Amino acid sequence: MAKTDTNYRYSGPLTGVTLDDGREVMLHPGGEISLPANNHYVKALVAQRLLTEVPKQSPVQEVPKPQTKKEEPSAS
Score class of each variant (00 low, 15 high):
Ser11Glu: 09
Leu14Tyr: 05
Tyr8Asp: 03
Pro59Phe: 00
Pro59Glu: 05
Val25Asp: 01
Leu35Met: 03
Val60His: 03
Ala2Phe: 05
Glu53Lys: 15
Asp20Pro: 03
Lys69Met: 07
Leu45Val: 03
Ser76Arg: 12
Thr6Ser: 11
Arg49Ile: 04
Thr15Leu: 14
Pro73Gly: 09
Arg9Val: 14
Leu51Arg: 01
Gln61Thr: 08
Ala75Cys: 07
Asn39Ala: 15
Ser11Tyr: 03
Ala47Ser: 15
Ala44Arg: 12
Pro13Glu: 11
Val17Cys: 08
Lys65Gln: 12
Lys70Arg: 12
Asp5Glu: 09
His40Leu: 10
Glu53Trp: 02
Val54Trp: 00
Thr4Ser: 13
Val17Leu: 10
Arg23Gly: 06
Arg49Gly: 08
Asn7Gly: 07
Glu72Val: 12
Ile33Thr: 02
Arg23Pro: 02
Leu45Pro: 00
Ala44Lys: 13
Glu53Met: 12
Thr6Arg: 07
Val54Cys: 05
Ser76Asp: 10
Glu24His: 10
Lys56His: 08
Gly30Arg: 03
Ser74Lys: 15
Val46Asp: 04
Leu27Cys: 06
Pro13Tyr: 05
Ala44Ser: 15
His40Arg: 09
Asn38Ala: 13
Asn38Glu: 10
Lys69Gly: 08
Val63Ser: 03
Lys65Asn: 10
Ser76Phe: 10
Pro13Val: 09
Val63Thr: 11
Asp20Arg: 15
Thr68Cys: 06
Lys70Asn: 12
Lys3Asn: 11
Arg23His: 11
Arg23Met: 08
Thr68Gly: 13
Leu35Ala: 02
Pro29Val: 04
Val17Asn: 06
Val42Ser: 01
Ala2Trp: 05
Val25Pro: 00
Val60Trp: 00
Ser76Pro: 11
Pro55Ser: 10
Ser11Pro: 00
Pro29Met: 06
Met1Gly: 15
Gly16Lys: 15
Val42Thr: 01
Ser34Tyr: 02
Gln48Ala: 13
Leu51Glu: 00
Pro29Arg: 05
Leu14Ile: 06
Gly31Ile: 02
Ala47Gln: 11
Asn7Gln: 13
Lys3Phe: 07
Gln61Ile: 05
Ser74Asp: 07
Met26Cys: 06
Pro29Cys: 07
Glu32Lys: 10
Val17Ala: 11
Ser11Thr: 12
Ile33His: 01
Lys3Cys: 06
His28Ala: 11
Pro66Asn: 07
Ile33Pro: 00
Val25Glu: 03
Lys70Asp: 07
Gln48Gly: 08
Ser76Cys: 06
Gly12Lys: 01
Glu24Tyr: 09
Glu72Gly: 08
Leu19Trp: 00
Leu14Phe: 04
Asp20Met: 11
Glu72Phe: 04
Val46Leu: 07
Ala44Phe: 05
Lys43Cys: 07
Ser11His: 09
Leu19Cys: 05
Asp20His: 14
Lys69Cys: 08
His40Pro: 13
Leu51Ala: 01
Gly12Val: 01
Leu19Phe: 01
Lys3Ile: 10
Pro13Thr: 15
Val46Lys: 04
Glu72Cys: 05
Ser34Val: 02
Gln67Val: 13
Gly22Asp: 09
Asp20Asn: 14
Asn38Gln: 12
Ser74Trp: 11
Pro59Val: 02
